[in-house]
Design a binder for these strands. Structure first.
Lengths: 365, 365
DNA sequence: GTGATTGATGAGAGCGCTTGCTGACGGGCG
DNA sequence: CGCCCGTCAGCAAGCGCTCTCATCAATCAC
C-alpha cells in the first residue's frame, strides 16, 4: 500500500465543506462554540436568550453532534458490547437476553454491539486469544459476557482492566466466585419449587432427567436432590448424557427408565426440549401425560405457538437481559467499583402436564 | 447541571498519564509519530529498519491504536448497524440472519450494532421518528434494515444520505422497487419447486395454507398458483388468517377444509409453524402424515431437535445474513454507488412428510 | 462610592491520530 | 562532478468537540 497522492488541492479555507458542525451553529447563533457546547450538553448556566438562539440555530441547521468527535474527546463511548461466548449460534434463550439488553440500553442512551467468540476453558489467561471487540481499544467501554464463560476470560479481562458484567448461570468455575458484577436467574429456586409441587401432588417416584456434567443443569439437579432429601424421598435421576441433543436425551433417558420397569410417576426435566423428549418417550410406552405421568420442564417465557402446554420452571429471559444492561451501565457510571449481584426470580408456571398422583397409575406400566 | 469544577490541577505536562499512545511508541522507537502511523496502517514506503523498530516498540508497549481517535480523524467508523424493524422480538429467523451478519462482518474487520425500531407504514417520511441509531451522527456508517420495512423509512434514509442495505423479502412496497442494495432469498422459487414436487408425486388436491395479506406469504402463494395453472390444476387455498398464531392458523385452516369435506391430498404451508398446525389438524381428523396426506412447510436451516421431520422449502438464513453483511461493506467501500441485488437460493429438503399419492387415500375421509 | 464576590461568556488548548507537504539523502546519468 | 529525481522521514495542520481559564459585567456588602 502506498500513501495516497495529493488530491485535496485548495482545502476549504474558512468555509465549511458542506457539513454542519458546532462552528456552523455558533456562527449562526452569534455565540462562541463553547456556549453551543454548553447548551447542547444541558448545562444550566447559560443565559436564557443565548440558549434560545442556539436552540433555534440547532433546529434550523438540523445539527447533531458528531459522535465520533464526542467519544474521542470525552474518552468514552456509549457502546456496550454483548459478547456471546462458546455458543454455536444465537439460540432463542440468548436472543431474548440480547433483546432485553438492547431494550434497557436503548432506553438509557446506550447502544449494543453484538459479538461472538470461542475459547477453550483450559487456555491460560495470558495465552487466550481475545476476540477483536475486546482487543480494540476504545470500541466498547463495557462488555456483557453471555454464553458459556470460564474463569480464564474473566481473569484476562481483569488483567486488562476491561469493565465487564457476566451472566452467572452459564459461568463455569472451579472454586466459588464472589458474586460481583453478575446477573443470575434463580433456576435452583424454581427447581426446588417444582420438586415440592410434585411431592405435594402426591408423587414419590420423581425422576430428574438431565446431563449434570453441565454445571447449569447440575445446579438444578442439586436443588431437586435437596428437596427430595428434605422429604425423605430418594432422588432418582438419569444424569448421564445419552445424546447431545436435548430432545433426544430426554427421550432416551425416559425410555431407558421405562424399559427397565423402574417406577416413575413424574419427570422433572432439566430443559424444555428434554421435557418434550420425555413426553415422546412416555407416549411411546403407552403412558399418557398427565394422566399416567406428570412432567415439568423449563422455559424462558418465549411466546410459543398454540400447543405449549408444558408445566415449567420459567424465567423471564428478557428481564435477565435488562438486568445485564442495567448492571453494565451502572458499572460505567459507578466509576468502576464492583457491583453486587442481581438475581432474577423464576416461577413455576402450571400448565397442563401435571396431575395429582393416583396409585393405579402404577398399574399401567 | 452545572459545569464541572476544576479538578485537574497540574495537568501532566510532557509525561504520559499512563496510557500508551502513538507518541509513546514513536518515542520508544525513536521515530516520528507519522512514521508510526504509516507502519501501523501498512504503508509500504517505510524503511525496513525503522519498520522493525516500530513493530518492536508496538509489541513491547502492547500498543493498540485508539479507535475513537482513528474514527474521528478518518471520519468513518467500522460499525454497521443491524436494524430490526417492526418485530416484537428477535425471532429465530432473524437471530440466524444477525448471526450471519456478525460472522461476515467480524471476518472483514467490522462490528455489528444491534438495534430495533417500530414505525407505522403510513407515516410520511418527513414525520417519521427515526430510531436513535439513525439519528446519531457518526455512530454507524451503514444500516442493514431487516425485519418488516416500508418505503417511508427507505425514503427517509435516502433523503438523509444514510447508506443502507435491505432484506427484501420482508420489504412491503406499493409499486415495484428497483432491486438495488438489497438481499433477497428466493422463496418463490422454492415454493414453485415444492408445488411441482407434489404434482410429480401424483397429488392433485394440493392446498396452500397461509395468510396472503402478508406480502411475504403472498409471494409464496403466487408461485404456487402459477405452477398449479401451468399444470392445469385448480389452486385451492385457505388464505384468510384465522389466527395471528401461525401454528393455530395452520391448524384451523386445515380443520376448516376437512370439516367441509373438501378433497385434500397435500398441504403446502406458508411457514414451518403453520405446517405443524396443519399436521395437528390432520391428526385430529384421523389422517396420518404422510400416509393419508403429504405436508410441506418452510424452514431456515435452524438446528431442530430430533423430531424435525417436515419436508420443507428451506433457506440458509445465516447465508442471508452473510450476504447482507457483504453488501453493507461493499456499500461502504464502493463509494456509495448502488449495488445490485443478491439472491440466496432456497432448496426443497425432502424429509418425512411427503409420499406419492394413492387414490384410496380419498376414501379415508 | 469602593472593593469583593458571583456569574456568564469567549478564547483557546488539547484529545490521538492521519496526511499533505517539505526537504534531506542518495543513486543514476550526462 | 553536478544535476535531477525518486524515496522516505519528520513536521505540523488539522479533525469537532470539551473544558479550563481569563475576562468582564453585574451584584452585593459596607
Amino acid at each position: 500500500m502506498r500513501r495516497h497522492s495529493a488530491n485535496s488541492g485548495q482545502a476549504a479555507t474558512e468555509t465549511e465543506n458542506g457539513r454542519v458542525t458546532i462552528k456552523s451553529v455558533a456562527r449562526r447563533a452569534g455565540v462562541s462554540i463553547g456556549t453551543v457546547s454548553r447548551v447542547i450538553n444541558g448545562f444550566t448556566d447559560v443565559n436564557a436568550e443565548l440558549r434560545t438562539r442556539v436552540e433555534k440555530a440547532v433546529r434550523e441547521l438540523d445539527y447533531r453532534p458528531n459522535l465520533r468527535a464526542q467519544s474521542f474527546v470525552r474518552d468514552k463511548s456509549p457502546i456496550i458490547s454483548f459478547l456471546l461466548s462458546n455458543r454455536g449460534g444465537l439460540n432463542p434463550f440468548h436472543s431474548l437476553i440480547l433483546q432485553g439488553v438492547e431494550d434497557y440500553c436503548a432506553n438509557h442512551g446506550y447502544f449494543v454491539l453484538f459479538a461472538r467468540c470461542q475459547y477453550a476453558p483450559g487456555t491460560r489467561p495470558s495465552e487466550l486469544r481475545l476476540p477483536t471487540v475486546l482487543l480494540t481499544n476504545g470500541l466498547a467501554d463495557c462488555v456483557i459476557a453471555a454464553g458459556v464463560n470460564h474463569e480464564n476470560l474473566l481473569k484476562m479481562m481483569d488483567q486488562r482492566d476491561l469493565r465487564y458484567v457476566v451472566l452467572a448461570n452459564n459461568l463455569v468455575t472451579q472454586e466459588p466466585r464472589e458474586p460481583l458484577n453478575q446477573v443470575r436467574f434463580d433456576d435452583a429456586g424454581g427447581y426446588s419449587e417444582a420438586t415440592r409441587y410434585l411431592i405435594q401432588l402426591g408423587h414419590r417416584d420423581i425422576w430428574f432427567v438431565g446431563d449434570t456434567s453441565l454445571q447449569w443443569f447440575r445446579n438444578r439437579y442439586e436443588a431437586y436432590v435437596q428437596v427430595m432429601h428434605e422429604n425423605n424421598l430418594e432422588p432418582r435421576a438419569q444424569t448421564v448424557a445419552l445424546s447431545d441433543d436435548l430432545f433426544e436425551n430426554g427421550r432416551a433417558s425416559v425410555d431407558m427408565i421405562l424399559e427397565r420397569e423402574a417406577p416413575l410417576s413424574a419427570v422433572l426435566s432439566c430443559a424444555g426440549e428434554s421435557a418434550e423428549g420425555a413426553m415422546e418417550a412416555l407416549r411411546e410406552h403407552g403412558r399418557e401425560v398427565p394422566r399416567d405421568a406428570s412432567v415439568i420442564g423449563f422455559d424462558y417465557m418465549i411466546v410459543r405457538s398454540g400447543l405449549w402446554k408444558l408445566t415449567s420452571v420459567s424465567v423471564d429471559a428478557v428481564e435477565v437481559g435488562r438486568q445485564l444492561g442495567r448492571l453494565a451501565i451502572e458499572r460505567l457510571t459507578s466509576n468502576g467499583k464492583p457491583l453486587s449481584e442481581a438475581v432474577v426470580p423464576t416461577t413455576l408456571i402450571k400448565r397442563g402436564t401435571c396431575r395429582p398422583f393416583r396409585s393405579n397409575e402404577q398399574m399401567v406400566l
